[in-house]
């Protein structure tokens, strides 16, 4: 049953990907196909990583309302970008070599996330209110610092900064796709390797420990993997907070299964399908009149509110 549903999800992704690649293909076919393939790879990597990371994060946090982005990833990304523009100026920032910039951002985001998750989980933990509050407070602090710094920027510098702050799937440096893809594929493989342990971890800390799982070490490893996936995605296209929540919720609804060995690939496939479908619609139907990231965030935010309200009622 679960395998069949996974197969359907994979077929849907293949279908929308083929549509994205080949629909309305005119002019220099090789050149356009190459461009579309690079964009498709980015959409699939980011969507899959967001979905899988959210499933893993929700399990170790014992809460299906959470998404790793809620602890202030977007604010840190804005802060890093602002500081970079401030330090280097608009010309320096715009001419930064893409790969070192991407690697530095990924490293900083990963370190921040691992430290934050580690502290939150060690000090009491799987308390959703505390985690959200911490995320909100840290996010507010970083946004305030970034806002202050932005006031000191020249208008031309501010314009360059604004362009880099919204998640964008349209302009991806092809130099980044391979390293990001490798990192995300390795992280996804580690998630699948941890899947059976995640099943046990979902029973809770004490129960998992009495079943022989080295829970604290296991959770820390899971959080590092989540941090890597979210950080690579964010550094690649910008912050997309609620995509993972959408993908994870749809994966739970579609599979009706507790096993991570099927939930992780399902969320990855659904996350990728959402982005590829959305980008296809925006590029081919709406003629790039809006931003996919904004719509995904809007839909994901509504889902988050719906889940919170349903739980509280």
């Amino acid at each position: 049953m679960a395998k069949r549903r996974l197969t359907y999800l994979a077929l849907i992704l293949i279908g929308v990907s083929a549509f994205f690649l080949f629909w309305n293909l005119r002019g220099p076919v090789g050149f356009i196909l190459n461009l579309r393939a690079e964009k498709l790879a980015t959409l699939i990597f980011v969507g899959a990583a967001s979905g899988a990371a959210t499933i893993v994060f929700q399990t170790v946090a014992s809460n299906r309302l959470l998404t790793p982005g809620i602890v202030g990833f977007d604010a840190l990304f804005i802060f890093i970008q602002t500081m970079a523009v401030m330090a280097l100026g608009s010309a320096g920032f715009a001419t930064l070599p893409a790969l070192p910039k991407f690697l530095t951002e990924t490293a900083v985001l990963t370190l921040f996330a691992t430290a934050l998750f580690g502290i939150l989980f060690r000090t009491g933990a799987r308390d959703v209110v505390r985690m959200i509050l911490t995320g909100v407070i840290l996010g507010t602090l970083l946004r305030a610092l970034a806002g202050f710094a932005q006031r000191l920027l020249a208008p031309s510098e501010f314009a360059v900064l604004q362009q880099s702050l919204v998640a964008s799937f349209n302009v991806i440096d092809d130099e980044l796709i391979a390293p990001a893809g490798i990192a995300l594929c390795v992280a996804l493989a580690v998630c699948l390797w941890m899947a059976r342990g995640l099943d046990v971890a979902s029973l809770g800390r004490d129960k998992a420990r009495t079943l022989g799982l080295h829970y604290d070490r296991f959770v820390f490893l899971a959080l590092i993997v989540v941090s890597v996936m979210v950080s690579v995605s964010t550094a690649l296209v910008g912050p997309v907070i609620f995509l993972g929540l959408l993908a994870a919720s749809l994966a739970h609804a579609a599979l009706k299964d507790h096993r991570h060995l099927v939930l992780i690939p399902a969320a990855a496939l659904i996350g990728a399908t959402i982005l590829v479908t959305g980008q296809t619609a925006f590029e081919r139907v709406f003629g790039l009149q809006s931003s996919l990231a904004i719509v995904v965030e809007f839909a994901g935010g509504l889902l988050f509110l719906a889940l919170v309200l349903r739980r509280s009622s």
Partner: peptide
């Protein structure tokens, strides 16, 4: 344990 974690669909 006294309280059991809830795992939906289990």
């Amino acid at each position: 344990t006294q309280s059991q974690g809830a795992v939906p669909r289990l």
